[in-house]
C-alpha cells in the first residue's frame, strides 16, 4: 500500500473549524453589547436662553397647563428656575405632515396664547416603516418633547435621531407659522 502513514487525527482535521468557531464565539461575547436599543444623545447642551430671541417657552409648563398634551410629559417636570411662561391656550393643534427620508412626521402642539410659541408638543406620527425607526422614535420623541418645553422650536437635535428631529422641528415651525395639518 502506498500511504504508510497513519490516518490524520481528528484533532488535526477539526482544528481549523474549532479555531474558527472559537474565535467567532469569543468575538460574539466581546461584541454583543446592545445599548438597550439606540444610542441617543443631545447634540450639545445649549443654554436655555435661545440666541435668536424667539419669544419662546423658556420655561416650565406646569402640569395643569399642558392640556391634552402628552400625559407622559407631565412627569418630566423640568427645572423651575426659569421665568414663568406666557399662558397656554389649552387646545392642542395638529401641524402639517412633513415627509422625511424615513417617513412622515406630524406634530401636535399646545401653543401659547399668542400662538407664537409652543408650550408643549408631541409627535403622534413618526416614521414607522421599519423597526429601527420605531425603536429610535420611541426613545427620541419623548426626549424632543422635553426639549421643546425648554428650548422651543429651535431645540437641539437628538443624535441618532436627526431625521426625526428635523421633521419634528419643521412641522412645529409650520404650526407656529399658522399652518395646520
Amino acid at each position: 500500500m502506498r500511504s504508510s502513514d497513519r490516518p490524520a487525527s481528528l484533532a488535526r482535521r477539526a482544528l481549523p473549524a474549532v479555531l474558527l468557531a472559537g474565535v467567532s464565539g469569543a468575538a460574539l461575547t466581546q461584541l454583543d453589547r446592545p445599548s438597550s436599543g439606540i444610542a441617543l444623545g443631545r447634540v450639545k447642551p445649549k443654554t436655555s436662553t435661545t440666541s435668536n430671541g424667539t419669544p419662546s417657552n423658556t420655561g416650565t409648563v406646569s402640569p395643569s397647563t399642558v392640556g391634552n398634551g402628552d400625559p407622559t410629559a407631565t412627569s418630566r417636570v423640568p427645572n423651575s428656575s426659569v421665568p414663568a411662561p406666557p399662558a397656554c391656550s389649552g387646545a392642542a393643534v395638529l401641524g402639517p405632515v412633513v415627509e422625511t427620508r424615513w417617513g412622515p412626521v406630524q406634530v401636535k402642539a399646545v401653543l401659547t396664547a399668542n400662538g407664537k410659541a409652543a408650550c408643549s408638543a408631541d409627535a403622534p406620527v413618526t416614521p414607522s416603516d421599519r423597526n429601527r425607526s420605531l425603536d429610535i422614535n420611541s426613545q427620541a420623541v419623548p426626549l424632543i418633547n422635553d426639549e421643546v418645553k425648554v428650548q422651543g422650536v429651535n431645540f437641539d437635535s437628538i443624535t441618532g435621531a436627526t431625521v426625526t428631529s428635523d421633521g419634528y422641528r419643521e412641522s412645529l415651525q409650520a404650526v407656529l407659522d399658522g399652518k395646520r395639518g
Binding site: 467567532s24 468575538a27 460574539l28 461584541l31 454583543d32 453589547r33 446592545p34 445599548s35 436599543g37 444610542a39
Partner: peptide, 12 residues
C-alpha cells in the same frame, strides 16, 4: 457589530 441587539451574532 453589537450595539443593536443580536446583531453581533448576525454579523459573525
Amino acid at each position: 457589530t453589537g450595539r443593536q441587539p443580536y446583531m453581533a451574532a448576525a454579523t459573525i
